[in-house]
């Protein structure tokens, strides 16, 4: 290994835990199943984190986007789009790799020692998240909008983060809510179980296949100011970077792939210091 270093695996994990704690700092709210209602909920967190989680200190960008789109009289969300765009242009999917609480959760459960499949997920599966973004995050709230507010359809029918971080804790602390559990909750629990099982088997299954926020940041990876560069002159095509990448990216072919979460594993693995992550406009 060369001298060119990004964050080590331990440093990255510490940053992930710090981001998790910062995003979910109201731990005491779990006891009574209350929500934080302060002014910081005006702001969206960069990662996927349900605002109905008792510990959440900020709003979820995907939930907020759907809320505004589903509000009568509004067909575009300026504020939330601006926030997501700003985070994405500055950092791209570095947010997924370092700041997303649900990303950390998936990494932790992937460490459960069970035999992992040797075969990678099919290439087409990575496009599912773009379909979900358009169909459930954008079109769904707009179409369900009538006289009243539209539904946040991604949160309602799919989001496993909401079920895990908010649904289960809220049901445990609010007995009155347990009386209204129906088919929708069963569907969401099934989706959560599927995502958990597949995330144990496949590294960051939800990020690779289902996350609409990852889809947006992935598109912005191409132009993000924090980006990855490969020095073709130094590269000896040893293939170690592609082998170490758990997001199935070959950085020598596509350094700013929409799938790259900027974890830095390839940078640290490269024996020739041919890969670096820099923070300047591309």
């Amino acid at each position: 290994m060369g001298n060119n270093r990004f964050f080590t695996a331990l440093q990255r994990k510490l940053i992930q835990f710090a981001a998790f704690g910062f995003t979910n700092s109201h731990i005491g709210n779990y006891a009574g199943g209350k929500l934080y209602t302060g002014k910081f909920k005006n702001f969206c967190t960069p990662g996927l984190n349900c605002y109905s989680c008792p510990a959440a200190g900020f709003s979820c960008p995907i939930g907020s986007l759907q809320t505004v789109l589903g509000t009568p009289g509004r067909n575009i969300s300026l504020y939330v789009t601006g926030i997501i765009l700003a985070f994405g242009v500055l950092f791209g999917r570095f947010i997924c790799g370092f700041l997303c609480p649900f990303g950390l959760f998936q990494e932790l459960i992937h460490k459960i020692p069970v035999p992992k499949p040797k075969r990678r997920l099919p290439k087409w599966s990575k496009y599912i998240k773009y379909v979900l973004l358009v169909a459930f995050v954008i079109i769904g709230p707009l179409l369900t909008k009538g006289i009243g507010a539209g539904n946040p359809t991604f949160c309602e029918y799919i989001c496993p983060a909401g079920t895990l971080e908010a649904g289960i804790p809220m049901l445990l602390t609010h007995p009155e809510l347990q009386t209204v559990i129906g088919e929708l909750f069963s569907l969401k629990i099934i989706i959560l179980i599927i995502v958990v099982v597949l995330s144990i088997l496949y590294y960051r299954f939800f990020c690779k296949v289902l996350c609409p926020l990852g889809a947006i940041y992935g598109l912005l990876n191409k132009v993000s100011i924090l980006h990855l560069e490969v020095d073709k002159a130094s590269c000896v095509s040893c293939g170690r970077c592609a082998k170490v990448c758990q997001m199935d990216v070959d950085v020598t072919q596509n350094p700013n792939s929409a799938e790259c979460i900027r974890c830095g594993c390839c940078v640290n693995e490269c024996p020739k210091d041919a890969i670096k992550i820099t923070f300047k406009a591309q």
Binding site: L35, C50, S64, Y79, V80, E156, G167
Partner: peptide
């Protein structure tokens, strides 16, 4: 709008909406 949604329990988010 963002604040009003996020300070109340989102029934859709928790699967009861």
């Amino acid at each position: 709008l963002v604040l009003n949604k996020s300070i109340r329990i989102c029934m859709e988010c928790i699967g009861l909406g």
